[in-house]
Amino acid sequence: MPTIAFQECTVECAPDETVLDALTRQGLEIPSSCRNGVCQTCLMRATEGKPPRTAQQGLKETLIAQGYFLACMCKPTESLTASLPDEAVVQRVSARVIYREYLNGDILRLRLLPYGAFHYRAGQFLQIRRPDGVIRSYSIASVSEIDSLIELHIRLLPNGSMTTWLHKEVREGDCLEISGASGNCFYLPGAPARNILLVGTGSGLAPLWGIIRSALHEGHQGEIHLYHGSYNVAGLYLESELHALAEHHPQFHYYPCVDEGEGAAHHSGRADKIALAQHKNLSDWQVYLCGHPEMVKSAKRSAFLAGANLTDIYADPFVLSKTP
């Protein structure tokens, strides 16, 4: 009989019994509502063991890949270790700053060497914990299959205490405390022929840079279109690298976009507007949106109306912290 390990308890799951029923039978509190696999209130994550596919119906592919399942639909065929989605698996790792350079006037590239295993997928984010306890999230720009170091792109924010510290005080050779990677915005191999649209603003390019290199590394054959937007030309970065990537990979297309300023080398206007104007039918496309929260929100709606399914839209809005 399969068992379910949850928090400090281990519960036996009777034949034909769901994980939700087994856990609540023991008096454990699992949020639930429809109990029919529809509302997704009882979303859980298996950190050990594989939940049956029938318990993952309707979930985003990237959630499925991380072992998420619906407890009300899960009649396990093997033993599972399960947690609630917000009980993040807190893994803290020490990482040394090996390399730092400016990618443009206010975006700093940091490359870190983790001490110990650090598993991530290109496009996920990690957290940096400063010695005084302040924690901030940053997207990962590297690809673990290609790069030996973890790369971050950190934009200096006015009044951003963490970014100021990272820009002004942290030096090569210093050690940072980082948390395990999380987030659902990443490339998944398995559909190499599908077309991909990516729109990012500012340092929202970081996760997209990782996702694109990861997709090309995996041999993605479908079209990949990247629209990177900034207020002006000075805010763009990795331009020559992206042009070079496009030259080597005919399926990859790069469109630098600026709100202000003219030039043959750039598209004039907001990146998301230009992208959606050029791609009016996104039916069966995968869409990645990263950067300014308002851009992400409005582009998500536009991409959906252009035919992309919600489960194929991966968004990573950069939410600014209110506390300094």
Partner: peptide, 11 residues
């Protein structure tokens, strides 16, 4: 929130 809304509509 579009995801939450879609879940309600599925129900």
């Amino acid at each position: 929130d579009m995801e939450r809304q879609a879940a309600k509509q599925k129900a």
